[in-house]
Write a protein that binds this DNA or RNA. Structure first.
Lengths: 337, 337
DNA sequence: CTGTTAGCGCGTTCAA
DNA sequence: TTGAACGCGCTAACAG
């Protein structure tokens, strides 16, 4: 290709990479030759030489979950525009497999890492990462990585509780996720905080933490409902937990929202079609993935830059499960709009 | 690392890669040194030399959709076990962007490609791919690639129609996807076929094709319901289309299943919690991703091997939307089991 | 502004 | 069985 253009390979490289000040004519010649031969530089040879790969790794605990799938979409979308490729690692939540996933990524010379599950602390991350740029998604790890993008978890739950209080409820129960990750911890904190601000008591049997699954939510709701606190409303930390509560209410023949009001974090696309439609906290998970990727690429290009913690805003989408009166047409409009 | 072990780099390479017949002692020495220095061979240097990367590309039209997310999970899971990494490309469905995605993957020396959207024919695929192994997922492209893994599309719809006929329906409508992809085409064919076998007429206004979205399903259902065919049952080619039909039924105050029975392809996790719970065709999408990856890795290791077309079996999950009488407990059991 | 050279870190010759 | 040397394709460094 170089001889074809009648220039050295160095010149060709310069032209193609837009480096140096070369004569327009030379550049044109090179481009022509490159096009003629449909020359495509080898990214792997380039990577070997330059020690960067234009590739970033993304570690998620469970690809098939719609939340992570959306994160992936956002990240991939930005990375594509920025000229990076995405290597995906589905690691589960076990510390060892997450660590192994990150190590593999680093061995493969990714330029940076996006991590959305953090089953160990800053120390181990720092040991693993060295100076490799890293941004956390949906998790906050202080003292490691370049920054993070998370949801306004506490604020979201506060909005839910405040809304229930506004409806006149005083015994507002909470079904939360495990307290070993950022979302779980912050959402519980938001609940406590909001209850306190509304001057409402929080007896021990008014809330319960469990896995992020429908099944666990179902079990937790049964326990709460069987307790002595007799809540008139339940707020949940995720959509799956809300479905569990919904199932529990049905099994106990409790009408929602009349016998028990319900509202949850996470606004899934089928929420308007549930009976009753589910009041929820919405946020833009795709944008969240984009922002994380953007922050990471920033850190790759400017390693010295200060990291920061970014938060995605949340908004309350009132529907019928909380007790708001709403025409069914409004539910349908959301879905067919 | 080589000098540390007191052997040449060639010897080290041989030991680490299990090549050649070297003395056990030498091998042990090398392993020890490798472990001591925590030596990690550079995949990129290796790739430059060997011209393969232990990496495969996966092209999906829309990562955030739960179907593709599950496919990804399955593929990633097998690839991980087999020692391959996964580069993800979210290409949309535009021919040019799909082609560009595949080209990028090839430039990056992936060892093979998994493709789940095929907006052009075998010729272009062959031109794009050269001899690079390729397996199609959820699509069948005869004359290109090494094989494909798809769902028993026609069979699934036949089961749905047969079930409706068994319930005594004779005017069974169909809301299908676009007929520009395998699933859309085969599901429509399954409908026609089943109607014929049941000796039922298919007037033009008894079925309608549209995009794979709730909104489009809603619009299509309204058209069908406004027509002269007055169906007593509707079968849809996807879960989203079924949600559209559900919305349409609600907007027209039609009770499901009494005024209109409903059943669909795709069994989503919330199907048992809809009111009424949705009768659906289930299949294992994660396994589908695994099988595709498995087939691809087979093709990479044995390029001469014959390709084949594999089908994932489907099963009918009868719930209440079709008219089956079922205790609500059964719905709940599914979800909390 | 352009050409020449060297080497990124492996795996694979070829010769000993 | 082992070691030395070469080259995969590119770009950074240096020379002209």
């Amino acid at each position: 290709m170089a001889e074809r253009a009648g220039v050295s390979s160095a010149t060709a490289s310069r032209a193609l990479n837009g480096r140096g000040q070369l004569a327009d004519e030379t550049r044109a010649t090179v481009f022509q030759a490159a096009a003629d031969l449909d020359f495509r530089p080898s990214p792997v040879a380039r990577s070997l030489r330059t020690r960067h790969t234009s590739t970033v790794g993304l570690v998620v605990p469970y690809v098939a979950h719609s939340f992570y799938a959306s994160l992936i979409k956002g990240a991939q979308s930005y990375l594509h525009e920025a000229g990076y490729r995405l290597i995906l690692v589905d690691s589960g939540v076990e510390p060892e497999s997450v660590a192994a996933g990150i190590t593999t990524l680093l061995d493969h010379q990714v330029d940076g890492v996006l991590v959305s599950t953090t089953p160990f602390g800053a120390d181990r991350f720092n040991r693993l990462l060295g100076t490799k740029p890293c941004v956390f998604l949906d998790e906050v790890v202080s003292g490691a990585g370049h920054g993070s993008v998370a949801i306004e978890n506490a604020k979201g739950v506060r909005m839910l509780v405040d809304h229930m209080a506004w409806h006149g409820h005083r015994r507002i129960a909470f079904v939360g996720g495990p307290n070993n990750n950022t979302a779980g911890i912050e959402r519980l904190a938001g609940y406590r905080d909001a209850m306190k601000k509304n001057e409402l008591d929080v007896p021990a049997d008014l809330y319960r933490l469990c896995d992020w699954s429908i099944k666990a939510g179902f079990a937790a709701a049964l326990v709460i409902l069987a307790g002595t606190s007799s809540p008139t409303a339940i707020v949940t930390a995720s959509a799956e937990l809300a479905l569990g509560v919904l199932a529990a209410a049905r099994s106990r023949q409790l009408a929602i929202p009349d016998d028990l009001a319900l509202a949850s974090f996470d606004d899934r696309y089928f929420a308007p079609l549930l009976q009753p439609s589910l009041t929820a906290i919405a946020y833009d998970e795709v944008e969240m993935g984009r922002k994380g990727a953007e922050m990471l690429v920033g850190a790759i290009k400017e390693p010295k830059a200060e990291g920061h913690e970014m938060r995605m805003d949340v908004r309350l989408v009132p529907r019928r499960s909380c007790g708001c009166s709403r025409d069914m047409t409004a539910d349908l409009d959301e879905v067919i709009g």
